[in-house]
Design a protein around this nucleic acid. Sequence first.
DNA 1: TAATTAAGTGTAAAATCAACACTAACTATG
DNA 2: CATAGTTAGTGTTGATTTTACACTTAATTA
Lengths: 246, 246
Amino acid sequence: MLRRPLNNYISVDCVIFGYNGQELQVLLVDRTLIDNSTGQPEFTDLTLTGNHIYEDETIEQAAYRVLFDLTGLKNVFLDQFKTFAHPDRLKKENDRKWLLHDGRDPDKRIVSIGYFALLATQNITLEWKGRNVKWVSVSEVGELAFDHNQILEEALIALRNKIKQEPIGFELLPEKFSLTQLQNIYEVILSTELDKRNFRKKIARMKYLIPTDEKQTGVSHKPARLYVFSREVYEKTKKELFDFTV
Amino acid sequence: MLRRPLNNYISVDCVIFGYNGQELQVLLVDRTLIDNSTGQPEFTDLTLTGNHIYEDETIEQAAYRVLFDLTGLKNVFLDQFKTFAHPDRLKKENDRKWLLHDGRDPDKRIVSIGYFALLATQNITLEWKGRNVKWVSVSEVGELAFDHNQILEEALIALRNKIKQEPIGFELLPEKFSLTQLQNIYEVILSTELDKRNFRKKIARMKYLIPTDEKQTGVSHKPARLYVFSREVYEKTKKELFDFTV
DNA sequence: TAATTAAGTGTAAAATCAACACTAACTATG
DNA sequence: CATAGTTAGTGTTGATTTTACACTTAATTA
């Protein structure tokens, strides 16, 4: 079956966040532009991952497709956070070359619907289907093509807001994890330090954190107990919170 | 100057919330489809407000333009909350007739970028520029055209989340307001009841609420003191909150 | 001037937050 | 095999915030 893009000028961009146990990372695509005449690489740019939306799929399905094509994973946490359509968003010199090379009119607008995804880095086999993708620490991301630095920035804001409201830290961890790992995720995302005892007291109040009998292995210190997140308990116990905080 | 739509199939939809002192309302457009052959009205549908995006404007500018055209107001609170693009979102019979009548292909997708706006109903002169718009209580909205019921639903969710985080209740009130009015806004939006004394204690801790010397007039009971919201104080005192609540 | 209506105000018990330091369990090394 | 190194794990106290709860005040209207 032939699937045509719904419209060349609408796409999804996925900010795929990963956590490797130390730092928050983002999955970037390394694109090299081949000069059509010489066949030589002209320049290389880093971009977020993204794609067109096909006629027969929802935007959410398009975002899941991008994720699956790059990581081989389904059932990934995914959240739409903002749509970008500034008329000048593609005015960098290299961006224009890219679009021309891609057969698109660089003076037309691209409306880009932003999603962010969360996954545990260790689950991923990269270079999936020949694409040249890599994890980059969020704190070390340099200049990206198009307006992707801005999109990443907004994704981070959305991620911070989300993690303050809902227990999505687990999405960045393997199924079994230690409390220190979980705390580290909050610290990294919120750029703050948390008190170990207070954090544990607070998280313990949430019933959805289930201790297992297993412990860390292969560490040269006291091994941590491993926990799992119970989505069932979470769904049961979540109640509307009326912290109209400000 | 000729302004052409950026793309017929991308639009902004504005969920314009208003508050009249009692209930939360939404501004709806009453559209009557005139049969091209007979010149007679074929049917009437209610929709949210919306429009195309022009080539030379940002989506945010397009949303402000929609707002201004309908209400004559600038400087309105406006927030992008979600983009809608389900392939089947325009499959109702009347929706198709409308799009045909409008010169559009009803089988093509319309990507609609949702904004919600907040304003005090009493500031508004309706029927602006001949458009047939009206306030409808949010709790009494019936079936809308297209997928506008779903968009309204998501706008309400976004509004509830927002008001729990930021002091935007003031946007629904005239410049000077009583504490009871403010409390009522929280109660209406969050569908809950709040204790008067506790609400006042909490809101008093926020320094941005400035009492004036004025009192309500024309009420047949003890008149309430009027307050104003100080944006300056708010900007100064807001600090990052680390309530990773859940 | 009495009735009606909504405004405005305080306290006490319970829950949560914030600050803070030591012991336990494992590995690696000498 | 003893020691050093490393991270896990745990409780208390004072300050702040939340929750629950009822009466007096100031205006209008009858």
